[in-house]
Nucleic acid binder design. Structure first.
Lengths: 148, 148
DNA sequence: GTTTTTGCAAACCATTTGCAGGGTC
DNA sequence: GACCCTGCAAATGGTTTGCAAAAAC
């Protein structure tokens, strides 16, 4: 997740006001390891005894989304989750076990997209590729739990 | 979208009962051109004066999903939509204008996924690739509207 | 001081569930 | 006839909105 400085800069760039709530939300996100839902943040805020309303969380989240410091992913279950990430085009691989996610990109994707466009006659404007699986850490802990 | 026969066969294969409601939902889906939401079907049913409850629509949709005759896609807006499709692994390209979708697949995707797995250390179990753009028909009508 | 943002609560929308009656095998 | 499926309505969970007070510029 982008650190405080990046968020401040992004807010400024976007002409948005730098408020305590927004920084607090960004901070909450920064402490998160894997993906999280809006509800997670609401609970985090409550746990930290921060006086931040649900609405503000949703609004901040939407703003951070526009600024590109978080991205929304749609879990196979249909749930909406968010992950902190770099504000450049890329894709996510998310761990179904712990929710952690990693970014990646691959030049071949452009060719695949171009080819699909040619074959279907669509003019493609955007795409989304999400991989789901298990991260190395979760595999290791699963193995150690199974062994012995 | 799979036609009546396919749905009947799929129901039978799954050991599910062939009911009027399910066929009605399948029929509603068959008349749909692009992607649709559960709410769309509910409204369609109401418009057709079909005596089908919301719950049944949701339940049928879930069942058709399991049977593989429809698939859920997550629009960039975060909405959940469905599209009728073939019950084999593939990806969708969906038109942002009319919602119509086409299926495609590309052998290179497997390599991309394998590579991402290697680079991130994840063991990938599933993936989802969605392309968004404008279909040929919508581009043509947009052009003709603009021209003259 | 003006404009944006916030917190709250209520409104909204999508989806699920409990249950008694009805349909399918 | 047994069991599955349906409709209804109510419950649920997630997200948005209206508004007056508070904060940022």
């Amino acid at each position: 997740m982008a650190e405080r400085g990046a968020v401040v800069a992004a807010l400024d760039r976007g002409g948005r006001r730098l408020t305590e709530s927004r920084l607090a939300v960004a901070a909450l996100i920064a402490t998160r390891q894997g993906h999280f839902t809006a509800a997670d943040l609401v609970e985090d805020a409550r746990a930290s005894r921060l006086q931040i309303g649900r609405a503000t969380i949703f609004r901040s989240l939407e703003m951070l989304l526009e600024l590109g410091v978080v991205e929304r992913i749609d879990l196979p279950s249909g749930e909406h989750a968010y992950v902190g990430c770099q504000p450049s085009h890329h894709h996510h691989v998310v761990c179904s076990s712990c929710g952690r996610s990693a970014d990646f990109d691959d030049v071949r994707i452009a060719a695949v997209v171009a080819d699909a466009a040619r074959r279907t006659g669509f003019q493609i404007e955007s795409h989304r590729l999400e991989l789901f699986g298990t991260c190395a850490a979760c595999r290791a802990s699963a193995k150690s739990r199974a062994g012995t």
